[in-house]
């Protein structure tokens, strides 16, 4: 029990080390403009939608599938779901239901197409971005969607956190405590062996898209709540949403050695948002902020990929030293 607790504590510390370091760093250099509770709450609120998208993408990425169309799904779900809610006068519950139905429906379409066409996911989903971005131009007069007043309440604390907590719990339970979640991980780590063990890769991948669609639908609800108005956008503008979430996923994968993927992704997204706010506090311009953020990510990924190399190098040096000493002493 003692060892288990110690191991657990150590892993928790390692998981939280990165955001703590970022926080402390900007607390020191932020000219007293960083670190307030209001700011942390704002950062947490800003993290909700990207985390939801990250969870959707992370599930697919576990099985080796990229999904660049996630942003497009969110865009379609926001506009169609939001307008349907307004049309039916169903308010927030209607918005949630319709956005999630549309999110699941569109994501399922991606999954069905993937199984049917058997093209690489990266190719398919980039192509579908163009399709999904066009859909809003043809529905509801092409004017997008506008909500206001009480319908935007989910953007505020604590409602946004309640939403995140519920969705996070769903992901955590499904990914770790259901046969589907185990099958996803099995397929992701050994497709051939899993297939021979009776798993159906096509079915599992489709379910993965559908499952991701639930989170994209909720991300659409948050997107609407925060912005109030969503206009159709073309030219792969929605891919920007995906890239933001990807950063969280990369850090999440780096942290998954110490903690569950869902937790890692959440920490990763929050850390990136905190970094951005910290850079604003320091007074960096947009360009410098973007360069810094990119460099930060590169450093994290570089450290992650080369972890252990330093200790490995040290161990090798030590071994060489001992061997040379033995040889010189003629103790062979």
């Amino acid at each position: 029990m003692g060892t288990k607790f110690k191991d657990y504590t150590l892993r928790t510390i390692k998981s939280l080390l990165l955001p703590i370091m970022v926080y402390v760093f900007f607390l020191i250099i932020g000219n007293e403009r960083f670190g307030s509770s209001r700011q942390m709450i704002t950062i947490a609120r800003q993290s909700v939608m990207p985390v939801l998208i990250s969870l959707a993408i992370a599930c697919n990425m576990s099985i080796g599938m990229w999904d660049f169309s996630a942003g497009g799904v969110v865009a379609v779900a926001s506009i169609v779901g939001g307008n349907l809610a307004k049309m039916t006068g169903t308010g927030i519950p209607g918005m949630i239901i319709f956005c999630m139905i549309v999110g699941v429906a569109v994501a399922s379409f991606t999954g069905l197409l993937y199984n049917f066409m058997k093209v690489p996911s990266i190719v398919l989903t980039i192509g579908l971005v163009l399709v999904y971005e066009t859909i809003p131009f043809f529905v509801f007069g092409g004017g997008g969607v506008l909500i206001s007043g009480k319908m935007t309440i989910l953007a505020l604390a604590p409602y946004c956190f309640i939403v995140l907590a519920i969705m996070f719990a769903i992901f955590y339970v499904v990914f770790n405590y259901t046969p589907f979640g185990h099958n996803v991980r099995a397929l992701g780590n050994g497709q051939l062996i899993a297939r021979n063990a009776g798993l159906n890769p096509g079915k599992t991948k489709l379910y993965s898209f559908i499952f991701g669609g639930i989170f994209l639908g909720m991300a659409a609800v948050m997107n609407l709540s925060v912005s109030g108005m969503i206009k159709p956008a073309a030219g792969m503008a929605s891919v920007a949403l995906v890239f933001d979430s990807m950063m969280g996923i990369f850090i999440g994968l780096f942290l998954s050695k110490y903690c569950n993927l869902a937790i890692g992704v959440t920490i990763g997204t929050f850390t990136m948002k905190m970094l951005n706010t910290g850079l604003i506090a320091v007074g960096f311009s947009t360009t410098i902020r973007e360069i810094t953020t990119g460099l930060f990510l590169l450093i994290i990924l570089g450290v992650s990929s080369n972890q252990g190399k330093i200790s490995e190098w040290k161990a090798k040096r030590q071994r060489a030293k001992e061997a040379n000493a033995k040889y010189a002493a003629g103790t062979m």
Binding site: T178, P179, G188, A194, N196
Partner: peptide
């Protein structure tokens, strides 16, 4: 090699037959 890395020993043993341990979808 017929085991899958990244999952537990138990998951490997019961791969493809996890439903026997699940109730209402929860494993």
């Amino acid at each position: 090699m017929g085991t899958i890395p990244g999952i537990t020993v138990a998951s490997n043993i019961f791969l493809g037959n996890l439903n026997q341990f699940s109730k209402s979808g929860i494993l």
